Amino acid sequence: MSALTNRLTVIFIPPYVTVGPVEGRTYTLTHSDETGELFLSVGGGIDSSKIDWKMRDEVIGTWQIRGGQYYLVCSVHISAGEFDENKARARYSIFKEEMPLALKGIINGDKGLFGYYPWLLNAPVQVEFCSIYPEFNQVMYYGLARHYQEG
């Protein structure tokens, strides 16, 4: 068992289960600053019960089809004006630094899906950093889902 697996808790919200469906599948990844634990909800929409609405440090992911190809599209909230530019800069920097770990949490937390649909591991991963400040309002390519798969 990897260190990630030991600190990752996954819940599935019916009708979403380990093997599907893919359509509408949404990930809500949160964490505990105190323990370093990661929490992943897999369901048909954002698990708003898991979001800290003051901190807004969640990562949301969805499967989308574009041009006939599946993409894993994730988004993070940097600032809609509630954080000043300095705080937004810090949030942006932290999210960029921690994004590979977050993506590992999503991909490894839903490993049953990839066992059933292994071709999804070839899906490109895109991350949208959402901010009112133009320099932090970015869309970045993070390689393929398989790059975040552990053993």
Score class of each variant (00 low, 15 high):
residue 2 S to F: 07
residue 4 L to M: 14
residue 7 R to I: 11
residue 8 L to H: 01
residue 9 T to M: 08
residue 10 V to P: 04
residue 10 V to R: 06
residue 11 I to S: 15
residue 12 F to W: 08
residue 12 F to H: 15
residue 15 P to D: 12
residue 15 P to M: 05
residue 16 Y to E: 06
residue 17 V to Q: 11
residue 21 P to R: 06
residue 23 E to G: 08
residue 23 E to C: 01
residue 24 G to V: 03
residue 25 R to I: 02
residue 25 R to G: 04
residue 26 T to M: 04
residue 27 Y to L: 12
residue 29 L to N: 08
residue 31 H to Q: 13
residue 33 D to G: 04
residue 33 D to V: 12
residue 33 D to Q: 11
residue 37 E to N: 15
residue 37 E to S: 11
residue 38 L to A: 01
residue 39 F to M: 06
residue 39 F to E: 03
residue 40 L to M: 03
residue 41 S to A: 15
residue 42 V to A: 03
residue 43 G to C: 04
residue 44 G to Q: 08
residue 45 G to D: 14
residue 46 I to V: 15
residue 48 S to R: 12
residue 49 S to G: 09
residue 50 K to H: 09
residue 50 K to S: 12
residue 51 I to T: 04
residue 60 I to H: 11
residue 62 T to H: 06
residue 63 W to F: 15
residue 64 Q to R: 14
residue 65 I to L: 12
residue 65 I to P: 01
residue 67 G to S: 11
residue 68 G to Y: 01
residue 69 Q to M: 07
residue 71 Y to S: 01
residue 71 Y to L: 11
residue 73 V to R: 10
residue 73 V to L: 13
residue 74 C to N: 13
residue 74 C to R: 02
residue 75 S to G: 13
residue 76 V to G: 02
residue 76 V to E: 10
residue 78 I to C: 05
residue 79 S to Q: 10
residue 79 S to T: 15
residue 80 A to M: 07
residue 80 A to S: 13
residue 83 F to S: 06
residue 84 D to Q: 07
residue 85 E to Q: 14
residue 86 N to F: 05
residue 86 N to P: 00
residue 87 K to V: 15
residue 88 A to L: 10
residue 88 A to I: 07
residue 89 R to F: 07
residue 90 A to V: 13
residue 90 A to I: 11
residue 91 R to W: 04
residue 91 R to N: 11
residue 91 R to G: 00
residue 94 I to T: 14
residue 95 F to V: 08
residue 97 E to W: 03
residue 99 M to F: 01
residue 102 A to E: 04
residue 103 L to R: 07
residue 104 K to Q: 15
residue 104 K to E: 14
residue 105 G to T: 06
residue 108 N to W: 08
residue 110 D to Y: 05
residue 111 K to Y: 09
residue 111 K to M: 10
residue 117 Y to L: 10
residue 118 P to Y: 10
residue 118 P to F: 09
residue 120 L to A: 09
residue 120 L to T: 09
residue 123 A to N: 09
residue 123 A to K: 02
residue 126 Q to R: 12
residue 126 Q to W: 13
residue 127 V to F: 02
residue 127 V to Q: 05
residue 128 E to V: 03
residue 128 E to Q: 14
residue 129 F to L: 05
residue 129 F to A: 09
residue 130 C to E: 08
residue 130 C to N: 14
residue 131 S to Y: 02
residue 131 S to F: 02
residue 133 Y to H: 05
residue 135 E to D: 13
residue 136 F to R: 03
residue 138 Q to Y: 00
residue 138 Q to M: 12
residue 138 Q to N: 10
residue 139 V to K: 11
residue 139 V to Q: 10
residue 140 M to T: 14
residue 140 M to L: 15
residue 141 Y to K: 05
residue 142 Y to P: 00
residue 142 Y to K: 13
residue 143 G to A: 03
residue 145 A to G: 02
residue 145 A to K: 08
residue 146 R to C: 01
residue 149 Q to L: 15
residue 149 Q to P: 00
residue 151 G to V: 10
